[in-house]
Write a protein that binds this DNA or RNA. Structure first.
Lengths: 195, 195
DNA sequence: GTTCTATTTGAACATATGTTCATATAACGT
DNA sequence: ACGTTATATGAACATATGTTCAAATAGAAC
């Protein structure tokens, strides 16, 4: 056998990325073999190399796509008025965006060390852009006197770390609705940076 | 050659655990081979099996020892008066304990998925004990009316996530001293749970 | 100094790894 | 219908993996 019936790069390509995403998130990049990914797709390992030059690029592609989506989704938010409203919007956006993509988020935070140095630098720069965005809000709020944080850089990282924590426990259909989670976290974030 | 000069289990054992800890933290459990660990110690791979039945037990042993230390160090803290003081003590303890053991902490949070189900359950139970400790403080504070959080369980996880974030950026000798870090985080935590 | 035990070597085993490539078949354009 | 291109197979390659074990030497006990 060779080319199979119904085979098409528009179909196989996404399926490979999807399978890789799922398996990387589940077992970790290093613990997943190309043959496992191929098996999940229902294809031989060799076929993967029509879609990625190597395993590393497969990982990098997933992480890069995720960060791109994050930044463009954030950029597409409607403008709101004042640091307090901006922070509230950020909290809601962050929680929802990340809860919708648990596997991508997991990989983006856990597999950084498995990137080559060049690839790591690119992903890190994108993440930094996102963080700077939040820090800008906090700084503006401090300047206007509506926030009081001893150090905006640290507060930025603290808020993001706190929000990322949601992904470790939230399960849709659980005790709390998304709206409730958003409210609870907004309450804590708001108070943490309040004057 | 066979047994080497100066070889002693009291020396080799700790060196193996230390090497495994460092390498697991650096590259991840799955990405590190027994030969790499042996190489770091200056020994052949076969020698490792005098100290661990297998690779999995090596990982589990490191995580288990870490959690044990965490819980006993926490239990050894002097008693303080009232939820506010208890929370402050917890924040300071958590930050310092974790900053002193970056590799152990990293592994304990990143390699959970590489544990067998039984081992995972044991580590998870220990972590749960620690979390429950903090939740007890928050609940007591809410009962006494000194804290106001919508949900003590979530607040617990949020606080711990926030505090864990310190390990991702703090470098000793950097811009901030340990005391300053402690003060900054205590300020944010205190306000986040305040009424 | 001899016996006993602790510790390490080094080779071996079976299997798994990422990647390449000649070959074959399906889909597409004319 | 036919030639071209796209997509897959399946075998092969060199190397790496976790683990075992007989043999060898060092340290400890007497």
């Amino acid at each position: 056998m060779a080319r199979t019936q119904g085979s098409h790069s528009d179909i196989t390509g996404p399926r490979i990325r999807k399978a890789a995403l799922k398996l990387f998130a589940q077992h970790g990049y290093a613990a997943v073999s190309m043959r496992q990914i191929a098996g999940e797709v229902g294809v031989q390992a060799g076929a993967l190399y029509n879609y990625t030059p190597d395993k590393q690029s497969l990982l990098f592609g997933l992480m890069h796509a995720h960060m791109d989506e994050l930044l463009s989704a954030r950029a597409a938010l409607p403008p709101v008025d004042g640091p307090l409203e901006e922070l509230k919007q950020f909290v809601g956006f962050h929680i929802r965006f990340h809860l919708e993509r648990p596997d991508e988020v997991f990989i983006a935070y856990m597999e950084l060390r498995n990137l080559t140095p060049e690839n790591f630098a690119m992903i890190e720069a994108l993440r930094r852009t996102y963080e700077d965005d939040l820090e800008g809000i906090l700084r503006e709020g401090v300047a206007q006197g509506v926030f009081a944080v001893p150090d905006t850089k640290i507060a930025t990282l603290a808020v993001i770390a706190m929000l990322n924590g949601v992904n470790t426990w939230y399960r849709s259909g659980g005790r709390l609705s998304l709206d409730e989670v958003e409210t609870i976290y907004w309450d804590m974030v708001r108070k943490a940076v309040a004057r």
